[in-house]
């Protein structure tokens, strides 16, 4: 079973990379962009077949390793 995770920076954490990407987009003519925030995306293929159990395990992974909860939020996307 594959489960996806998206990690994003919390709102009040400065994202200098996102800012530079925004500036670059602006320079390329995409001048209607309000803000860009950069994040991370993971695809986790697990042997677990029970979607609830798999999701719980991935949540534990997020808390223990994938995200740093001081600065990041995680969002688990439903198993396919």
């Amino acid at each position: 079973m594959k489960i996806s995770v998206i990690i994003t920076l919390k709102k009040d954490v400065l994202d200098p990379q996102g800012k530079v990407i925004h500036q670059a987009l602006d320079g390329m003519g995409f001048d209607d962009v309000n803000e860009v925030r950069q994040g991370k995306y993971f695809e986790i293929d697990t042997k677990e077949t029970n979607p609830k159990k798999a999701k719980d395990k991935v949540e534990e992974m997020c808390k223990k390793l994938l995200a740093n909860l001081v600065i990041e939020n995680y969002k688990i996307i439903d198993a396919n």
């Binding site: 954490v13 400065l14 200098p16 990379q17 530079v20 740093n68 001081v70 600065i71």
Partner: peptide, 15 residues
Amino acid sequence: ETGLVPGVLLRNKYL
């Protein structure tokens, strides 16, 4: 990252 001291270290402000 171990949590032994508080906070985090982000990328330098001017990249």
